[in-house]
């Protein structure tokens, strides 16, 4: 299996809104905990170690604190 990096959500706006809404009214710590649980649930759902490693690279490679190596 490979990581899907093409758009894959039927209703991106609604799904994104649901993600944000899940954090409504939470403190920063509660939000961090929710995110962690969510990552774990999704990680288990994906299961495939290669896909997860690719996902980690994508997440790590584009954002604050991303390690070097990009051209």
């Amino acid at each position: 299996m490979t990581l899907t990096s093409d758009p894959n959500l039927a209703d991106p706006d609604a799904t994104y809104a649901a993600l944000i809404a899940a954090h409504d009214g939470l403190t920063e710590a509660e939000s961090a905990a929710l995110n962690a649980r969510l990552v774990l649930v999704l990680m288990n759902h994906i299961g495939d170690a290669t896909v997860l490693r690719a996902a980690l690279e994508v997440a790590h490679g584009s954002g604050a604190g991303a390690s070097g190596g990009d051209i």
């Binding site: 961090a32 905990a33 962690a36 649980r37 990552v39 774990l40 649930v41 288990n44």
Partner: peptide, 20 residues
């Protein structure tokens, strides 16, 4: 620590988290 606590939280009700 956040992930560790999340694993423990989930492990109560969800078998998938127990191996972690």
């Amino acid at each position: 620590r956040v992930f560790r606590d999340a694993v423990l939280d989930l492990a109560r009700d969800h078998a998938f988290a127990r191996p972690l």
